[in-house]
Amino acid sequence: KFNKELSVAGREIVTLPNLNDPQKKAFIFSLWDDPSQSANLLAEAKKLNDAQAPK
């Protein structure tokens, strides 16, 4: 279960257009550290992506 959630969340995070590479890497490392938090980490990444969207 975690492997699928981890890969789905990881793929989504790397495609978020408004995150820079260090931010993406930080989220990916957090996913590896605790795969059970993949849904929460993906939600946080999406929030940050939205907040950094060009206005």
Score class of each variant (00 low, 15 high):
residue 39 A to F: 07
residue 11 R to W: 15
residue 5 E to L: 11
residue 37 Q to Y: 04
residue 46 K to S: 05
residue 11 R to T: 08
residue 17 P to Q: 06
residue 3 N to V: 12
residue 28 I to K: 03
residue 34 D to V: 03
residue 45 A to D: 03
residue 44 E to R: 05
residue 26 A to P: 04
residue 11 R to K: 12
residue 28 I to V: 05
residue 28 I to R: 00
residue 11 R to G: 06
residue 31 L to D: 02
residue 25 K to I: 14
residue 10 G to N: 08
residue 15 T to I: 07
residue 6 L to F: 07
residue 48 L to R: 04
residue 31 L to H: 01
residue 2 F to T: 10
residue 17 P to Y: 03
residue 12 E to T: 07
residue 26 A to H: 12
residue 19 L to A: 00
residue 36 S to A: 11
residue 26 A to Q: 11
residue 54 P to C: 13
residue 27 F to V: 00
residue 3 N to A: 11
residue 13 I to Q: 00
residue 42 L to V: 12
residue 14 V to C: 15
residue 3 N to Y: 13
residue 45 A to F: 01
residue 6 L to H: 05
residue 7 S to V: 14
residue 3 N to M: 10
residue 36 S to L: 06
residue 35 P to M: 05
residue 15 T to F: 10
residue 33 D to P: 00
residue 36 S to G: 09
residue 23 Q to V: 03
residue 30 S to C: 14
residue 21 D to H: 06
residue 14 V to L: 15
residue 20 N to P: 02
residue 36 S to M: 06
residue 23 Q to S: 03
residue 54 P to E: 09
residue 4 K to Y: 13
residue 42 L to F: 03
residue 29 F to V: 10
residue 14 V to K: 06
residue 27 F to Y: 08
residue 54 P to Y: 11
residue 40 N to I: 11
residue 43 A to K: 09
residue 9 A to C: 06
residue 15 T to E: 15
residue 8 V to C: 12
residue 48 L to E: 03
residue 33 D to I: 11
residue 24 K to G: 03
residue 55 K to Q: 14
residue 52 Q to M: 06
residue 45 A to T: 01
residue 29 F to L: 15
residue 22 P to S: 15
residue 53 A to K: 07
residue 4 K to E: 13
residue 17 P to D: 04
residue 23 Q to E: 03
residue 37 Q to E: 10
residue 47 K to E: 08
residue 5 E to M: 09
residue 55 K to F: 12
residue 6 L to P: 05
residue 21 D to R: 09
residue 4 K to C: 14
residue 11 R to H: 11
residue 53 A to W: 04
residue 15 T to S: 14
residue 47 K to V: 07
residue 5 E to Y: 13
residue 11 R to I: 10
residue 11 R to Q: 10
residue 36 S to Q: 07
residue 39 A to C: 09
residue 1 K to N: 14
residue 2 F to H: 10
residue 7 S to K: 07
residue 31 L to S: 01
residue 14 V to Q: 12
residue 30 S to A: 14
residue 33 D to A: 14
residue 43 A to M: 10
residue 45 A to W: 03
residue 23 Q to T: 04
residue 7 S to T: 12
residue 5 E to C: 12
residue 22 P to R: 15
residue 53 A to P: 05
residue 46 K to H: 08
residue 12 E to R: 04
residue 20 N to H: 09
residue 21 D to F: 11
residue 39 A to Q: 10
residue 54 P to H: 09
residue 44 E to I: 11
residue 44 E to T: 06
residue 45 A to E: 00
residue 19 L to N: 01
residue 1 K to C: 14
residue 41 L to I: 15
residue 38 S to W: 15
residue 33 D to S: 13
residue 47 K to G: 05
residue 42 L to G: 01
residue 8 V to E: 14
residue 17 P to K: 09
residue 48 L to S: 02
residue 21 D to I: 10
residue 35 P to F: 04
residue 3 N to R: 10
residue 37 Q to T: 04
residue 3 N to C: 15
residue 21 D to V: 09
residue 18 N to K: 01
residue 5 E to Q: 09
residue 30 S to Y: 08
residue 8 V to D: 14
residue 34 D to E: 06
residue 18 N to G: 00
residue 28 I to F: 03
residue 23 Q to K: 02
residue 24 K to S: 00
residue 1 K to L: 12
residue 1 K to G: 12
residue 15 T to Y: 08
residue 51 A to D: 07
residue 31 L to N: 00
residue 36 S to E: 09
residue 43 A to L: 13
residue 40 N to C: 11
residue 41 L to T: 07
residue 51 A to S: 08
residue 55 K to I: 14
residue 34 D to K: 07
residue 18 N to P: 00
residue 14 V to R: 09
residue 51 A to W: 06
residue 1 K to F: 13
residue 23 Q to G: 01
residue 5 E to D: 11
residue 55 K to T: 11
residue 35 P to Q: 04
residue 46 K to E: 04
residue 2 F to I: 11
residue 18 N to T: 01
residue 25 K to C: 14
residue 50 D to Y: 06
residue 27 F to H: 01
residue 11 R to C: 15
residue 2 F to A: 05
residue 54 P to N: 10
residue 14 V to A: 08
residue 40 N to G: 07
residue 7 S to Y: 14
residue 42 L to M: 05
residue 51 A to F: 09
residue 26 A to C: 10
residue 46 K to D: 02
residue 51 A to Q: 13
residue 52 Q to W: 01
residue 49 N to P: 00
residue 46 K to R: 12
residue 30 S to Q: 15
residue 47 K to Q: 07
residue 41 L to C: 06
residue 8 V to A: 13
residue 29 F to D: 12
residue 32 W to H: 07
residue 10 G to D: 05
residue 10 G to H: 15
residue 1 K to I: 10
residue 53 A to E: 10
residue 46 K to Y: 09
residue 16 L to D: 01
residue 12 E to W: 11
residue 52 Q to I: 04
residue 27 F to A: 00
residue 39 A to L: 09
residue 14 V to H: 08
residue 44 E to G: 05
residue 19 L to F: 00
residue 36 S to W: 03
residue 50 D to G: 06
residue 23 Q to P: 01
residue 22 P to I: 14
residue 16 L to W: 03
residue 38 S to G: 09
residue 24 K to V: 05
residue 44 E to L: 10
residue 27 F to R: 00
residue 14 V to G: 06
residue 10 G to S: 11
residue 50 D to E: 13
residue 32 W to E: 05
residue 54 P to M: 09
residue 50 D to R: 06
residue 24 K to I: 08
residue 18 N to F: 15
residue 46 K to L: 09
residue 38 S to I: 13
residue 29 F to S: 13
residue 7 S to N: 08
residue 22 P to G: 14
residue 27 F to L: 06
residue 1 K to E: 14
residue 33 D to T: 13
residue 42 L to T: 03
residue 35 P to Y: 04
residue 34 D to N: 11
residue 24 K to E: 02
residue 3 N to T: 10
residue 23 Q to M: 03
residue 48 L to C: 05
residue 46 K to A: 04
residue 47 K to Y: 05
residue 13 I to E: 03
residue 31 L to G: 03
residue 50 D to Q: 10
residue 7 S to F: 13
residue 32 W to T: 07
residue 53 A to C: 06
residue 13 I to M: 03
residue 34 D to H: 06
residue 28 I to T: 02
residue 53 A to Q: 07
residue 39 A to V: 10
residue 39 A to N: 09
residue 5 E to H: 11
residue 32 W to I: 09
residue 15 T to N: 15
residue 30 S to P: 02
residue 21 D to A: 11
residue 35 P to L: 03
residue 42 L to S: 01
residue 55 K to R: 07
residue 19 L to M: 02
residue 30 S to D: 05
residue 2 F to K: 06
residue 26 A to M: 08
residue 50 D to F: 07
residue 10 G to Q: 15
residue 48 L to K: 04
residue 13 I to D: 01
residue 41 L to F: 05
residue 53 A to G: 09
residue 5 E to S: 12
residue 2 F to R: 05
residue 48 L to V: 07
residue 39 A to M: 11
residue 6 L to I: 11
residue 42 L to R: 03
residue 13 I to S: 01
residue 2 F to S: 09
residue 3 N to D: 13
residue 33 D to K: 14
residue 31 L to W: 01
residue 7 S to W: 15
residue 30 S to H: 13
residue 51 A to K: 09
residue 31 L to E: 03
residue 27 F to P: 02
residue 7 S to L: 14
residue 50 D to A: 11
residue 13 I to T: 01
residue 15 T to K: 14
residue 41 L to S: 01
residue 2 F to Q: 10
residue 48 L to M: 06
residue 6 L to R: 04
residue 15 T to R: 15
residue 9 A to Q: 05
residue 28 I to A: 00
residue 40 N to D: 09
residue 46 K to W: 06
residue 49 N to R: 00
residue 37 Q to D: 06
residue 55 K to V: 15
residue 10 G to W: 15
residue 38 S to L: 13
residue 42 L to Q: 03
residue 37 Q to A: 11
residue 12 E to C: 11
residue 36 S to F: 07
residue 49 N to F: 02
residue 16 L to M: 11
residue 23 Q to A: 02
residue 5 E to V: 11
residue 12 E to M: 08
residue 12 E to G: 04
residue 27 F to Q: 00
residue 33 D to G: 08
residue 43 A to P: 01
residue 28 I to M: 05
residue 9 A to H: 06
residue 27 F to W: 01
residue 17 P to A: 08
residue 41 L to W: 03
residue 47 K to S: 09
residue 40 N to L: 13
residue 27 F to T: 00
residue 20 N to T: 15
residue 11 R to S: 08
residue 29 F to T: 13
residue 29 F to R: 12
residue 35 P to V: 03
residue 1 K to H: 11
residue 42 L to N: 02
residue 35 P to H: 01
residue 26 A to G: 08
residue 55 K to C: 14
residue 15 T to A: 15
residue 40 N to A: 13
residue 49 N to G: 00
residue 34 D to Q: 07
residue 37 Q to H: 05
residue 12 E to S: 03
residue 11 R to P: 03
residue 11 R to F: 11
residue 45 A to Y: 01
residue 35 P to N: 03
residue 54 P to A: 08
residue 52 Q to A: 05
residue 50 D to L: 10
residue 20 N to V: 04
residue 38 S to V: 15
residue 35 P to K: 03
residue 30 S to N: 08
residue 27 F to I: 03
residue 53 A to R: 08
